[in-house]
């Protein structure tokens, strides 16, 4: 066993490629491991790799608030499968997000964000528990919203685990849709598509995903709507009116498979530019300002960490020992 794995004790093991895998089972174990790493002058993400394989506990569902406590190592797709038995779902996340663990979704480029009806973004979790670089525990409130000082969960969300490592969180769910329909529209231009769809989202429509394809001078968009029968009906009516006002019309086109490509977080103008260049896109997490887009589009890559904004880098001073590995 390597000396580092040895020092870390039972929470660590050597890997086939000569590395060290750190797999704590709770916050205390993780905090202890961070202290050991610091004592050894070692860094997570460089000298040891974090695994959340032991952080997979799933708590009971709170049916009224539709929340439940979930270990950060649970893969979202598996969580969603399990939630179905309770009549719940994590809601419309992108396919790539669904393959991530809860921890990776919260800490990674997705920053744990999802769109809610009305087009606002909010974290998938309400309360989260994390271990910060100094080994201390951060536990945020489970209240839906707060004005009690700064939102300290921002130290973790999108932080790539460099400021704190999330161990579990209270996940907010939606009722499992009772209706799931697709509606297809043909619009005269990418600009008309963006106008119609941003308006519909702002007015309360909640599309689960959109396939959009610029074809022979028009844009064909197929939207998937899911929810209660009434909600789906209201959303379909709203989309119809917004599309109509933008000069579009319903279209009989069947669903087409969208391009399999990298996911980006993109702005609506970037989406429009991409459509104007004749590129088909799949859109997820449609919000007032940004979307998750699969296809050839400008934006922030979501499948791998990219360099931080300089301001985010200022926060690395909160890990003076560098035990969490510094900026990606």
């Amino acid at each position: 066993m390597s000396s580092l794995a040895d020092a870390l004790g039972p929470v660590a093991r050597d890997t086939a490629d000569g590395g060290v895998l750190l797999a704590p089972g709770d916050e205390r174990a993780l905090a202890n491991a961070l202290h050991v790493l610091a004592d050894q002058g070692a860094r997570l993400n460089r000298d040891a790799t974090l695994s959340r394989e032991r952080l997979t506990e799933v708590g009971p569902v709170e049916p009224r608030s539709m929340t439940l406590e979930v270990g950060a190592g649970v893969v979202l797709q598996r969580l969603d499968d399990r939630l179905r038995t309770f009549g719940l779902t994590v809601g419309p996340l992108s396919p790539s997000a669904m393959q991530l663990t809860l921890g990776d979704f919260l800490e990674g480029p997705f920053a744990g964000l999802r769109a809610i009806p009305g087009g606002r973004l909010e974290p998938l979790c309400t309360r989260l528990v994390a271990v910060l670089a100094d080994g201390r525990r951060l536990e945020t409130s489970e209240a839906p919203r707060s004005a009690a000082g700064p939102d300290l969960s921002a130290l973790v969300l999108g932080g790539h685990g460099r400021l704190g490592v999330v161990t579990r969180a209270r996940v907010r769910c939606f009722p499992l849709p009772e209706a799931d329909v697709r509606a297809t529209y043909s619009l005269p231009s990418p600009a008309a598509f963006v106008t119609a769809f941003t308006r519909a989202v702002a007015e309360g429509a909640w599309p689960w995903r959109v396939h959009v394809d610029p074809r022979s001078g028009r844009v064909v968009a197929e939207v998937r709507l899911a929810g209660s029968a009434g909600a789906v009906e209201r959303d379909r009516d709203l989309f119809g009116r917004c599309v109509d006002e933008a000069g579009g019309r319903p279209s009989g086109d069947a669903e087409r498979e969208g391009p399999v490509a990298v996911s980006h977080e993109s702005t609506w103008p970037a989406v429009q530019a991409s459509l104007e260049a004749g590129r088909a896109l799949q859109l997820f997490r449609l919000s007032l300002g940004t979307v998750v887009a699969r296809g050839d589009v400008d934006g922030l890559r979501l499948d791998e960490p990219t360099a931080w904004s300089s301001l985010g880098g200022r926060l690395l001073a909160l890990d003076p020992r560098g035990v969490l590995g510094g900026a990606p």
């Binding site: 480029p109 920053a111 973004l121 707060s146 004005a147 009690a148 000082g149 700064p150 939102d151 300290l152 969960s153 921002a154 130290l155 973790v156 969300l157 999108g158 932080g159 790539h160 400021l163 980006h264 977080e265 993109s266 702005t267 300002g289 940004t290 934006g299 922030l300 960490p305 990219t306 360099a307 931080w308 904004s309 301001l311 985010g312 880098g313 200022r314 926060l315 900026a327 990606p328």
Partner: peptide, 24 residues
Amino acid sequence: LITPERPFSGPDLAPLLIGSEGTL
């Protein structure tokens, strides 16, 4: 400073300043 608009990589500084009541 001017905080960046989405999308950007890394932690979002804005939520850490919003609600700080002049202390930061």
